[in-house]
């Protein structure tokens, strides 16, 4: 059986689905017998989602949008 370290090193490719069948199966077998790695897997996955959902909510504030609009107008007439 593969060890936790190998398992965690391969997590990225495991999520991308880019591992070959045998390796994926080895990871699945490891997860069945290793609750700490399952916890690691779940929290690794949720970390990506949490960070993405927090950071991609950034909108341009109205005053910045206004400044940009004026800026573009000015420079297009150069």
């Amino acid at each position: 059986m593969i060890c936790c370290k190998e398992c965690i090193d391969l997590l990225y490719d495991y999520f991308e689905g880019s591992l070959d069948q045998d390796t994926t199966q080895s990871l699945d077998e490891h997860f069945q017998e290793c609750p700490p790695c399952v916890a690691f897997l779940n929290t690794y996955k949720v970390t990506t989602v949490l960070c993405r959902d927090t950071l991609n909510q950034i909108e341009i504030p109205d005053e910045v949008r206004h400044t940009l609009k004026n800026f573009l107008k000015e420079h297009k007439n150069e």
């Binding site: 370290k5 965690i8 700490p36 399952v38």
Partner: peptide, 18 residues
């Protein structure tokens, strides 16, 4: 980064907070 013992097993206690 995660730490492992000599046999490659996780050393710290991992909580599942997902």
């Amino acid at each position: 980064l995660p730490s492992f013992n000599g046999a490659g097993f996780q050393q710290e206690k991992i909580q599942d907070w997902s």
